[in-house]
Design a protein around this nucleic acid. Structure first.
Lengths: 102, 102
DNA sequence: TGACTTTATGGTAATATTGCCATAGAGGCA
DNA sequence: TGCCTCTATGGCAATATTACCATAAAGTCA
């Protein structure tokens, strides 16, 4: 059962809109907390805590540069995953409309 | 931001060990609640609620057969995703050990 | 009909998550 | 040194999640 705990930790870390927004930004390039704070509609302390969650799950890594802290995306699995998920959900919608005769 | 809400709903649904156990079982074959209840170390009502979460996220579909309710996996994205995640995490561990000179 | 099985749901308590404020610590620079 | 920026953390209140129990609804079958 603890095999699933590790996976659940990853999934839970992905389970918040702000964190997904952060991850999509980090997929482009490393960013410091100050940049991410401008991006995310939330307090700096809140962003910092979201980043701690992602760090704890092993999804991002941290690098200090002077007074700034840069976060870096550590996994490349997300884009493909969401693409797969969304194509399935879109197909389901289509099937549903057909089933309704619409 | 609501684009991320939909994804977060999916991720949150994956964010519980019991639900991951259920999904791995459903990846093999459709199963009724009674079968899943034997599998998961939790009350039948708890399993039923976990299934409702998965259903709401669009990850599984439902089919009634007499008195039984069968759940079916609707997405095929999970196995590849976890494989990707775990290979990355494993590589990180390896790198970490090398960095320590172990 | 009555007994039984299967499933879902309301109630409720325990726990976890979230978000903001206030603040502390660390680095950079005049 | 003094002041600024950047970041993390403790505190706390609001909200969400989880799990169990009890129970109701629906199907099956004698």
């Amino acid at each position: 059962m603890q095999h699933y705990e590790a996976r659940a930790t990853i999934a839970k870390a992905l389970g918040h809109p702000s964190r997904l927004l952060i991850l999509e930004a980090l997929a482009e390039k490393d960013m410091c907390v100050c940049e991410l704070t401008e991006l995310v509609p939330a307090d700096q302390s809140t962003v910092s805590k979201h980043l701690a969650v992602l760090k704890h799950a092993g999804i991002v890594s941290v690098r200090k540069e002077g007074v700034k802290t840069y976060y870096r995306m550590k996994i490349q699995c997300l884009e493909g995953f969401w693409k797969c998920i969304e194509s399935v959900l879109k197909q389901n919608l289509k099937d549903h409309r057909v089933a309704l005769g619409a």
